[in-house]
Write a protein that binds this DNA or RNA. Structure first.
Length: 108
DNA sequence: GGATTGACGTGTC
DNA sequence: AGACACGCCAATC
């Protein structure tokens, strides 16, 4: 399997600058799959098995909620990583989400 | 190859 | 404001 949809998702995810986050839908849209936001998250399940570490913790849903935190080594791991990068997480939700939001389309 | 699923998104009740 | 439902798309079974 090469150049599958997953790889594209990982590619975008790795481009997320430190201290910034993005949403699944935004990535999906950047890939041109608009409504395939679920596929982005699904691809992230493999993020643990890919080469360069994929900053999946920088990817949240459109509400800025850490929906996939349970898929990490530890749910709290995700939040700590975000806070360590300067992102404030409150109640499993990213604070100032609009401010830290990084739009892949803007870079691509 | 049809059916199921899934770390989503938006709208409606 | 919280809960529920439908829609999208691609991979896996």
């Amino acid at each position: 399997m090469e150049a599958s949809f997953y790889e594209q998702v990982f590619e975008i995810a790795r481009l997320i600058p430190k201290g910034r986050v993005t949403s699944y839908g935004a990535i999906a849209k950047a890939l041109g799959t608009g409504g395939g936001a679920r596929m982005v998250g699904y691809a992230m399940s493999n993020s643990h098995a890919v080469h360069p570490k994929v900053p999946a913790h920088r990817v949240v849903n459109s509400s800025g909620l850490l929906t996939g935190k349970f898929h990490f080594s530890s749910p709290e791991r995700m939040q700590q990583l975000l806070e360590k990068e300067g992102i404030i997480v409150e109640n499993d939700k990213i604070k100032d989400f609009k401010k830290v939001f990084w739009n892949p389309l803007d870079e691509l």
